[in-house]
Amino acid sequence: MVSCSEREALYKVIYSRRDVRGQYVDTPVQDEVLSRVLQAAHHAPSVGFMQPWDFIVVRDPAVREKVKDGFEIAHREAAEMFSEEKREQYCSFKLEGIMEAPLGICVTCDRQRSGDVVIGRTANPEMDLYSTVCAVQNLWLAARAENLGVGWVSIVHHEHIREALGIPDDIVPVAWLCVGYVSFFHETPELEQAGWLPRMELDRLVHREQWGQRAL
Rank of each mutant, 00 (worst) to 15 (best):
F55K: 05
E126C: 00
E100Y: 10
E85F: 08
R121P: 00
I73T: 11
G166H: 10
R121M: 08
A62Y: 07
V150A: 03
E77G: 00
P125T: 13
Q137S: 04
V107I: 15
E88Q: 15
V63L: 11
C134Q: 04
K94Q: 14
F71H: 11
L177N: 02
D170Q: 14
C178A: 13
L95H: 08
A142C: 06
M81F: 04
D110S: 10
Q89Y: 07
V47S: 14
A78H: 08
L95M: 10
L129F: 13
D170I: 13
G115S: 07
E100D: 15
T132P: 02
V150I: 15
S114T: 10
H43F: 09
H160A: 13
R113H: 05
A44C: 05
C106W: 08
R121L: 11
V153P: 02
G48S: 08
E96A: 09
N147K: 15
M81P: 00
K68P: 00
E159P: 02
L165N: 08
V136H: 01
E100A: 11
D60E: 15
P125A: 03
M99F: 07
H42F: 02
D69R: 14
I105N: 01
S46H: 10
Q89V: 13
T132M: 03
Q137H: 10
V179K: 10
D170T: 15
D128W: 14
A101V: 13
G70M: 09
V133T: 10
F49P: 01
D128C: 15
I171H: 02
M50F: 14
P168R: 03
D54T: 12
A41L: 03
S131M: 15
Q89P: 01
D60Q: 13
V133C: 12
A123W: 06
P61W: 14
L129Y: 12
W152L: 01
M127D: 02
V174A: 09
L148P: 02
Q137E: 12
I56L: 06
T108L: 09
